[in-house]
């Protein structure tokens, strides 16, 4: 397996006395789909925010591709090759689907501050943007405003935008939340496809999706690791079963 692509070492995050994540050690192996599960308030989204630097850890170290990123800014993280999605679908609502992807592709350009340069020049990105939209089955809807797309399609658009940056590590925060049955299947297939040459870390509540997709699962509860392993191991763990009691378990 070699060096893990992402390591968290002894990471703690406290919000005004409330400890959301406590002394967490987490290794994400390259090329795997790693799921982070746990009851509400377990600290899953906090872990995401820590890794992507939207939160600064109270203590501990975060290492990405062998580089200490604990002190980096969120926009730097994306440049290093780690891109996240958000729990609430994050698209640019007033822009067309095509423009959403195109704006991500602009990241590789050097004329982003050129306020005198017409945006017509960006048409040269259209082919690449359309092939990304095609990958998530959105090419036919490319001229629609993102705000007008149905929810499941918006999440697909978000994924296309994320893929535009060619990230090595993809962080997906509840990619299936609020999706209908067929959207879930379509998105699962999509995640499996894009994970072929990437690493994926995802938070997900839909356990059948987790069982189906992930190579490795970490169960969090109250900010600490309860269990880790593949689905077979984790699902038999008595501590995990106890933590999930009373919550719906599909």
């Amino acid at each position: 397996m070699g060096e893990p692509i992402l390591r968290m070492q002894g990471v703690t995050k406290a919000f005004a006395g409330f400890v959301a994540v406590r002394d967490l050690d987490l290794d994400i192996a390259r090329g795997t789909i790693h799921a982070l599960i746990g009851p509400n308030g377990a600290g899953k989204t906090t872990v995401f925010n820590l890794v992507t630097k939207f939160h600064q850890p109270t203590s501990g170290r975060i290492i990405f591709k062998g580089q200490d990123i604990t002190a980096k800014k969120p926009s730097d993280i994306a440049r290093l090759g780690m891109v996240r999605s958000f729990q609430i679908s994050a698209v640019f609502a007033s822009m067309s689907a095509l423009d959403n992807v195109r704006v991500a592709l602009q990241r590789f350009r050097s004329d982003n501050f050129a306020f005198w340069k017409s945006d017509r020049i960006l048409r040269e990105l259209d082919d690449r943007a359309r092939s990304l939209l095609n990958e998530v089955g959105l090419d036919a809807l490319r001229d629609r405003k993102a705000a007008e797309l149905p929810y499941g399609r918006r999440r697909a658009l978000e994924l296309a935008t994320t893929l535009a940056l060619e990230p090595e590590l993809l962080l997906l925060d509840e990619p299936m939340a609020g999706m209908g049955h067929e959207d879930v299947e379509r998105t699962a297939a999509l995640i499996r496809r894009v994970a072929k040459d990437r690493t994926v870390l995802m938070v997900e509540h839909n356990l059948s999706v987790v069982a189906d997709l992930s190579d490795r699962i970490t169960v969090l509860a109250r900010g600490e690791i309860l269990a880790e392993g593949d689905y077979g191991q984790v699902s038999k763990d008595p501590a995990v079963i106890e933590a999930y009691m009373g919550t719906d378990h599909d």
Binding site: T52, F54, K73, P74, S75, D76, I77, A78, R79, V83, R84, F86, A90, V91, F92, A93, S94, M95, D99, R102, V103, A104, Q106, R107, R109, D111, N112, F113, A114, F115, W116, K117, S118, D119, I121, L122, T161, L165
Partner: peptide
């Protein structure tokens, strides 16, 4: 309507997302 304006629009629509794509808002 410039290359700059596009990114500005993205930031206006959703700043955290623009940052997570690597733009220093």
């Amino acid at each position: 309507h410039s290359t700059f304006g596009q990114i500005l629009r993205a930031i206006r629509d959703n700043e955290p997302r623009a940052i997570s794509l690597g733009f220093e808002a």
